[in-house]
Nucleic acid binder design. Structure first.
Lengths: 227, 227
DNA sequence: CGGTGCAGTTGAACACGTTCAACTGAGAGG
DNA sequence: CCTCTCAGTTGAACGTGTTCAACTGCACCG
């Protein structure tokens, strides 16, 4: 044999993602992936530090496909709520084959220390991809966004998307219909909230929420360490 | 030997919770728990279907202690934001010893199918405990709550508490300071949002949010099954 | 006394994720 | 032709969560 390393690696990723789709995360064993790919167990671990690392591969794949399938569906000039709805539904479409796998995805990605966390530096690429997608959604919509919000809104929408994903993961209803309904309800709420945010009376709340959201992600603010 | 079952069970719970505190979730093995408790491995599994089931025990313990430590600290007549802040901080105090364990807690509780999920029927007891605590917080505060919200607000605050818990679990900052800051920011935001919700212009948004929140938890709405 | 049921208990066994020291074999250098 | 190197690979081994058929010993019944 003696393939090149990149070939073996790709072979393993493809096999793993297929098995994840077919059997879920827990149902897929490292031995199964190795056997199915025709390599030894130890060799699989040569390319992936562990089962978790294969999750990051999925994260990447899903983000890219989400963007590629969403962009042509956006309706320029439509209200933000409508385009957001399209975007979120498309995201669910992309993830659907992996729902059996989703629980494990979150349990791997959740710890902020984990490189698979959407907040981690290692995930910067996929994260920027997702935030940029939301920026496109905002900019290609007709809805007017207050100046204070404009810069931050894509990031907020990405956080909302994470929330939807979290709900989707825990959604045991058939075809995850509850999450679909959540999206249908959430999009107009965002639209209404945006309208409301233009009123002077809401200014204080908007500012506070922005501050809150800033604290949500990223590591601790650099606290002037002296070493 | 031949203890009564309840005794052995309690012995196992105490031992497990202690080891979880000392060594975290992954660091604690079922063999370790069994050995430390002086019972056989198989016997531990006679009382708990698996490691996960011990998590529910912790969930229960934490909820009860949260309530017991919060009630005497509430300031009747103070603004809701202040009492909410106290409540959330007290919750963090109670959970603090288990932070190393927290990641595992979520990964066990997340799947809605899991009995350990805060939305599951099996968790109804602890959940009601937590929602009732929030109800007490609302009722013992001076802040006026719009009629449409009054009944649902405790439930919404409980959801917010879940969100804070989720953030806490993923919080890698020293002593989980970021979550403390989140609470300090969140409480006033809730207060402001509540004020805003009294304006007629916000009525539509409030109703939509309430509808959204209704869909968040619980199983699928009973869809008139004919069997 | 002998048996019978049964709550409580046991330890071996299985499959899994992960680690690691050793092997393979094709090319480079002499 | 021999040897060295090293990326690619291997399979045994460890500790884990979990399962299960069998054991123990006490209380009760005849």
């Amino acid at each position: 044999m003696a393939r090149t390393g990149a070939e073996t690696r790709e072979l393993l990723v493809d096999t793993a993602l297929r098995l994840f789709r077919e059997q879920g995360f827990d149902g897929t064993t490292m031995r199964g992936i190795a056997t199915e790919a025709g390599v030894s167990l130890g060799n699989a671990y040569h390319y992936f530090a562990g089962k978790d690392e294969l999750v990051q591969e999925l994260y990447r794949v899903v983000q890219v496909e989400h963007r590629d399938r969403t962009l042509p569906r956006l309706d320029p000039g439509a209200p933000l709520a409508e385009n957001l709805r399209t975007t979120l539904h498309t995201g669910l479409d992309v993830m659907a084959p992996y729902h059996a796998f989703g629980q494990a995805f979150v349990r791997v990605a959740l710890p902020s220390s984990s490189p698979a966390s959407p907040f981690s530096p290692e995930s910067a690429g996929p994260r920027d991809l997702a935030v940029d997608l939301m920026r496109t959604v905002v900019e290609s919509s007709s809805t007017r966004v207050p100046a204070r919000l404009r810069e931050r809104l894509p990031h907020l929408l990405w956080l909302a998307y994470l929330g939807v994903t979290l709900h989707w993961v825990t959604d045991g209803s058939p075809d995850q219909r509850r999450t679909r309904r959540l999206v249908d309800g959430l999009a107009p709420v965002v639209g209404r909230a945006l309208s409301l945010s233009r009123l002077p009376v809401a200014r204080g709340l908007v500012d506070d929420v922005l501050t809150l959201a800033t604290g949500l992600d990223g590591a601790d603010r650099p606290t002037k360490e002296h070493a």
